[in-house]
Structures are given as C-alpha cells and as structure tokens.
Design a protein around this nucleic acid. Structure first.
Lengths: 144, 144
DNA sequence: TTTATTTCGGATATTTTTATCCTATTTATA
DNA sequence: TATAAATAGGATAAAAATATCCGAAATAAA
C-alpha cells in the first residue's frame, strides 16, 4: 500500500510526536532503534519530512528531531504520505491507466472508487496525536 | 496498490475473456497491443496465469491464450492478484510490522482494517465476466 | 517433412526502491 | 577555542521490480 519510506516516515513521526509531548528531542539513532529501521535510510526520510515542515530538525550536540507540541494534533497522515510518496495514492488508476475517470474509466474504476475514497478520508482525518496516544497507552506498537 | 505485473495480468485476463466468448484465441502480441504493455514482460505474466490454471495457453501456429467460456464468470480478481502478487495484500501490515493483529496492532491497524476488508471483499466478489461485459459495452477501457 | 507461427523459459539488462558510506556542517559544552 | 555530538547531503551499493533478448519446443498447414 505504502512504500517502505512512507512506513518509516509515519512510524518515525509518531515516535517523535510522543517524545515532543514531554519536551524531549529524539536522535536519529533513537528513532531508528525504536521503529526498527535502517538508520541512514531513515535519515533521508526525516530530512524530507523536515523540508516539508512536518517535523523540525536541530543540528549539533543535543540536536535531534521534534514537533511543535501544538501542531501534533493538526498533522494528518495525509501530509506525511504526500511528502514521501507524493499523491499517486490519490490520482493513480488502479490498473495504471494514464487517464481514468468517470468519462474514461478503467475496468475496476467504480469498484475502486469507494475504497480509494475511504482511504483518502482516513488519511485526511487521522492525526498524529491520536496515533501517539495509542502508543503511549500501549494500545498499539511501532515494531515487531 | 497493485504491482505493474498485476495490473497487466488483470487487463490481459479481461481481454482474453472478452475474446473467449467469441471462441477467439488471442496471441501475446494482440494482448500486449490491446492493453499497451511490454510484450516480453506480459509473456511472463501470462505464463504465470497459465501455470495457475487461470488462463489456458496453446503453443504453436494458431496458438495463443484463452479461457474456458464456462469459467469466466467463476474467475475472481482475487485469483489473479494472488497468482501474481501473492497474498501480501491481505496479510501485510499497513506499516510493515512483522506481526500486526488485534493483540499486537500497528498504529493504523484499526484504521486500515475496514479499508483492507472492503478491498478483500471487492476482489473476492468481482469476476472476469462483469469486467469483460463492461469493456464490450464500451463502459470501460483497457488503455490510455 | 518442411516451414511459419507461436508460446516457453533461461539469461540478461534497465530502472526504481531501498540501503549504506563518508565528509561537511552545526551546535553545546568543557 | 577545542572537542564531541548531531544532522545534512552527496556518492555509491544492493536488492527488487520491470523489461528485453534469444534459442528451444510445440503445432498447424503447406
């Protein structure tokens, strides 16, 4: 469904959010360990998220990644997915047609429409805060 | 959502079904042209579908691909997807966790559950016949 | 039986995605 | 100011997905 890069990006964002609530900045190393991802690859993704102003990066000693506490509940999964995978998840045709819409639908266009739309709504309405709270409560997990 | 291979496989199957209703066997060349796919790559996919007994291949002059007319309405999208992409679309965790279930959910497990299930139901209930009939009626398209 | 046609299948190539490595730069602190 | 701790980012490597090539095998028809 998502690329590996996107999976890492979502998990990393949740972990950063979780720590930001406690005013804790987290290092790349800590993030990669927590979400069980390759460190250098994760670094690239975090840079990408920082460039998109989804997370904030601080260089130098005692540096690391953080998210403005007040913004955590405003950040939607959609922003992370779009920053990393682009919007192909929205525009793309289920069967790869170049143009696929009501006037020129692919064979599964109608069948996919609702599913894709549900996914879209889910990504647009799910925010980082709720995901972080679940992790905090032990109701969900970032690895294994 | 699906791999390119899977997209080609679905479109090819629909085109073969369409022709099989008219007792017409179609060649790899004709298929690749109709669905705008690379010929040699499509060949591999058709071989795969044939090995899974979803389509039938006939070697030699006047050979090609066909589907038993009586089976067209019985072949579900699910079979094609599973033959080509495996069942990762069902078992895979949205965030790539090794184990992700009710007892050990990933952060988006609940959010994804319904969407994934809708997709599953769609693939399990959509058959080749209805897709072929839409193409025949000009209500959907295999390329562009 | 020869020839043309067509799929089969192994080998290889290209592209994209994922992952790693190394140096530069930034920053806090001793 | 020197040092250690971090991220930034360019270059490269490895793996996976996509795509191509070519000879072998099968089959219909001349």
């Amino acid at each position: 469904m998502f690329s590996k890069a996107c999976e890492y990006g979502i998990k990393a964002s949740i972990f950063i959010a979780l720590n930001s609530y406690q005013e804790k900045r987290v290092s790349l190393k800590a993030i990669a360990k927590e979400i069980a991802s390759p460190e250098a690859f994760t670094a690239k993704i975090l840079q990408d998220l920082a460039r998109h102003n989804i997370i904030n990066s601080v260089k130098g000693a005692h540096g690391g990644f953080e998210i403005n506490k007040k913004q955590i509940s405003e950040i939607k999964l959609e922003q992370i997915v779009k920053a990393i995978d682009g919007d192909k998840i929205y525009n793309g045709c289920g069967l790869g047609l170049h143009t696929c819409d009501e006037n020129h639908p692919c064979p599964v266009h109608d069948k996919f429409k609702d599913i894709r739309n549900d996914l879209k709504i889910m990504l647009e309405t799910t925010n980082l805060e709720e995901l972080a709270l679940d992790i905090k409560a032990g109701a969900s997990f970032l690895k294994i």
